[in-house]
């Protein structure tokens, strides 16, 4: 288990300066456009734009691949699943007993796989270029989300790494008590359930103490000021505009190409 991808190494210099709310907006409209339809044209348009914008991440192709390879596999599995289960139209491409792929079902699978990739990348853009504290500042100050929940969530997110370490150390501690190296599946599942329970006990205890520490520092009152102001700059208009442009372009292209396939239709 690697925790490399948990440390927010902020890479893209330009996008780091943009307000998280504008990045969220751009990602949200692109996601919305992609979600609305399952078709290969809108997915390809978004994917091409995303790949074109990737230099903004300031991360090497290899570095990016190391972070997102499970995503590529997931997209492949999604494509395969749909190709297997979609309506079997067009010519038969492959038939192995009950397994049947046709032109129509494979095309559907390809569209699903491309869409999954295109849907995932905006999230990667945000994770790689956004400091969680800046995000919380922006959500509370600009979007006016309730600050107690935003800050509670921020404080909890800080514990991801700590809880991961605790998971490892629980595993060692339990091994020292005589559990953990069973071969049978049911014993292993029982052990994992026990370890999970142990982690949740520790997490709740820690959270209760953290709540006390936060309350002792005046947290939870009605009004609050912010030591760091979350601001918008012209860059944010550009980010939001690019998001709108990509989303609009994808929808327009799909409609023009007559591939638009609204999910609720």
């Amino acid at each position: 288990m690697s925790t490399d991808h948990l440390t927010p190494v902020l890479t893209g210099r330009t996008l780091v300066r943009a307000n998280p709310v504008s990045k969220l907006f751009a990602a949200a409209v692109i996601t919305l456009a992609l979600m609305s339809s399952i078709d290969w044209v809108s997915a390809v348009v978004v994917l091409v734009c995303e790949v074109a914008l990737m230099p903004l991440l300031g991360i090497s192709v290899w570095g990016l691949f190391r972070r997102i390879w499970p995503l590529l596999i997931a997209a492949l599995i999604g494509a395969y699943g749909t190709a297997l289960l979609a309506a079997k139209t067009g010519e038969v491409l492959l038939e192995l007993g009950p397994v049947l792929f046709t032109e129509g079902s494979v095309a559907a699978g390809v569209a699903v796989g491309l869409r999954a990739l295109a849907l995932a990348l905006p999230g990667i853009f945000i994770v790689l270029t956004t400091d969680p504290t800046d995000l919380a500042d922006a959500l509370a100050q600009k979007l006016r989300l309730p600050h107690r929940f935003v800050l509670g969530a921020l404080a909890a997110l800080r514990l991801v790494g700590l809880l991961m370490e605790q998971w490892e150390s629980l595993g060692l501690a339990r091994h020292a008590r005589g559990v953990g190296s069973d071969r049978s599946v049911s014993a292993r599942i029982r052990n994992l359930l026990g370890q999970s329970f142990g982690l949740i006990v520790q997490a709740i205890r820690r959270a209760t103490r953290l709540a006390t520490a936060m309350e002792a520092r005046g947290f939870g009152g009605g009004t609050r000021t912010w030591a760091r102001e979350s601001t918008f700059s012209p860059l944010d208009a550009v980010v939001a505009g690019v998001g709108l442009l990509v989303a609009g372009g994808a929808v327009t292209a799909a409609v023009l190409a007559c591939t638009w396939n609204f999910i609720l239709s």
Partner: peptide, 23 residues
Amino acid sequence: TQVVLARVGDEVAFAPENLAVPR
């Protein structure tokens, strides 16, 4: 268990923020 935030400055600023002290 009593560290709330990720950066030293923000951590110290947290309490006065909660008390609505001017920036």
